[in-house]
Amino acid sequence: MLSQKRRNLNIVTGDSEISSKIVVENISHQYHIKKSKAEKKKEFTALKEVSLKVKKGEFIAIVGPSGCGKSTLLDILAGLINAKCGKIFIDGKLAHGPALDRGIVMQGYALFPWRTIRKNVEFGLEIKGIPKKERAELSRSFIELVGLKGFEERYPHELSGGMKQRIAIARALAYDPDVLLMDEPFAAVDAQTREVLQDELLRIWEKTNKTIVFVTHSIDEAVFLADRVAVMTSNPGTIKEIIKIKLPRPRRNADMRQSADFNWIRHKVWQSLQNTVTTINEERESGLTYKDLAEEISPSVVL
């Protein structure tokens, strides 16, 4: 009975034809790398024929081992890298180059140290050409949204890692992009802060109704946050499987972590990743054991 119910929670390959916010079509990308000075340049395929559709207002997470090209995919989505092959459509329109319809939040915060918190949040607004008075109002409300009211005139170095990441989120939200691209945003903060930020992010997402593409190497994080989890394999980077996460919303860390469904889905994603890792292992015939690779993928995996 229980196992029946669990099976029903499955894991359908995600497919969405209605109102796609982002369409990734056959993206391939190669880097030219030199391992040593003497060596000739080698071609390294970071992404191979990656296709993905993201619905408006959807929260999609991309998980995969390091070096699977997930960050490259995000940079291509942001318009910071031009893919060698393939196309990106935002709202059905071909996207090229960065624009204010997509906001990016990076692992390293990337706050401007010479600007106060308020001025950091206003950066995108300045580029957008919004008048000073309006900028001040917007920055105030977004700083309040991320719970840092009263820190407006501080400088980034005076804030903790978690606070800096909140500001980075506020900055990305302030110029009101439809899409939020997040590249391992919580990887550098401690475990407790991380859970708080995850809850906060869901709260903000529910409030603002943004489309979020969230890259992470933590299975827990992906399952907890997303509507769908795209599992990527490396070398060459491809999307192996898209797993639907049919957990009830609103989700909060405190109750979700206890739930059997959560743990079961997490295990499914883990298995999917394990398989990708095994195939790679066989190909490479490397000495890495399962366990090592599992840890590489997610330090928080405990089974």
Binding site: L100, G103, I104, M106, A110, W114, F123, G124, I127, Y175
Partner: peptide, 29 residues
Amino acid sequence: VEPLLIKSARSMGASSFTLLLKVIVPGAF
């Protein structure tokens, strides 16, 4: 100047001139 800051400014659609004025000059100051 921290490449991440340049990347971040570019992701917000900063033009080369804005980048120079608002990121490079203060960063190099």
